[in-house]
Design a binder for these strands. Structure first.
Lengths: 158, 158
DNA sequence: TTGACATCGTTGCCTTTGCAACGAATTGTG
DNA sequence: CACAATTCGTTGCAAAGGCAACGATGTCAA
């Protein structure tokens, strides 16, 4: 708060930097808020089921859309290829997901929920839905604008 | 969309799962949008200056608040302790940040921008400000509600 | 048909992350 | 003053992530 610093002779005079408050910077705020939301939910399944975020996304998408290839997950659940592949491998090892070769195109792997995976989702999905409800109630009147803002961010090419 | 599946004898009958579309799930949407914003900005400095997100946060906070300890960065820039420590170490190696022991409390390390770090920020901050401006223009009428929503998410204890 | 080109999923390699433990320094308590 | 408890920053270690390359498969056009 020293508007006119004494400028001691041995202190190099530096161009003043533009004012910039990280706390008002949108990429930062979004990142922190997103981390917070993910962490809040993850507490519900991470410790209890050994499921991380990538696994969660795979499971949800399989539950919602049925059998899917790794490529589908990459495109539709925003999972980088190797991330999706390894998450699927972990889920297969845990017995929640079955990997079967696709008959039509043998490059594809068909991932699907096992009975255990289905049962797991029967537990997890209600938790997620409740979390979503809580958020919607918290945001209330701002929810619509938030979603519109998110849409715009996602539509923008950059 | 087969509402009444044939229920073949060898197909175990499973409780139908609640409808759940990842694309409408807020933690997911926030995470994807945040990643997108960070990536958009990071392109401006990552390749060109070898600066990653943690380094960026350290630099910005030092530019904004002057000399800070690792603990300050942890608290005020949402950087986990070791992340802040290592980012500071990388920045010191790159010559952008100076680490000096704090006279009053010798447990603390005082991090500050070097002349080179100051010059770097004189380049980077305008980029960040322009990016913020672009975002604000894109969001336009929804900006206020977005910020209010972010505030609520951050205030909530969970 | 054949050969160039594209796509799919996995893997190797290296970096980054997260967590816990540690030594050094400081604070608080009796 | 001693000495337990706390705080600060770093580091070891195992897990996760990112990227590029690979083999296998599929497509397409000459």
């Amino acid at each position: 708060m020293d508007d006119t610093p004494p400028s001691l002779p041995d202190m190099p005079v530096e161009t003043p930097l533009p004012a910039f408050d990280l706390d008002r910077f949108l990429p930062y705020r979004m990142s922190v808020a997103a981390e917070r939301l993910s962490a809040g939910l993850a507490r519900a399944y991470r410790a209890q089921f050994g499921i991380g975020v990538p696994e969660w996304r795979v499971l949800v998408h399989l539950a919602h859309a049925g059998a899917q290839s790794v490529r589908d997950l990459e495109r539709r659940a925003n999972l980088e290829k190797s991330k999706a592949s390894r998450a699927a491998a972990r889920l297969e090892a845990a017995g929640y997901v079955a990997k079967t070769p696709n008959a039509g195109d043998r490059r594809l792997v068909s991932l699907s929920l096992t009975v255990e995976g289905h049962a797991l989702m029967a537990e997890l999905l209600p938790l997620a839905l409740a979390y979503q409800k809580r958020l919607e109630a918290l945001l209330a009147d701002h929810l619509g604008a938030l979603e519109a803002a998110l849409d715009r961010m996602m539509d923008e090419p950059a």
